[in-house]
């Protein structure tokens, strides 16, 4: 098996999906309000990394690793709930 990805905490990277590393703004703490404004249709998604459970393994997922594919990102209230 290849090297296991490091599993950290879920966090926005501070960048946008599709934005090259060079043009990324420095990772200064952003207020929620500022970040919220950036979620808009027709605009790049906010990039993030998050721990994941996938096919029996613990791994880490980065949204920008899915560039070139269609992605459906779903949030839900909680495991073992009803709907």
């Amino acid at each position: 098996m290849s090297e296991k990805p490091k599993i950290g905490c879920a966090r926005p990277t501070g960048g946008l999906v599709g934005q090259s590393e060079e043009t990324k703004e420095p990772q200064t703490p952003q207020s929620t309000k500022e970040v919220k404004k950036m979620v808009q249709v027709g605009k790049p998604a906010l990039d993030f990394t998050a721990p994941a459970y996938y096919k029996g393994e613990f791994t880490s997922v980065k949204l920008s690793d899915y560039l070139g594919k269609w992605v459906v990102l779903c949030f839900y209230p909680g495991d073992f709930t009803f709907v």
Partner: peptide
């Protein structure tokens, strides 16, 4: 929180669903 779906009072995330294209655009 960054995606605007986190309910701080309840401490859980609402049912948000985002379609993101191959260029990373919502």
């Amino acid at each position: 929180t960054a995606y605007g779906v986190y309910d701080e009072d309840a401490g859980v995330e609402n049912r948000g669903r985002f379609i993101i294209d191959p260029d990373g655009v919502i």
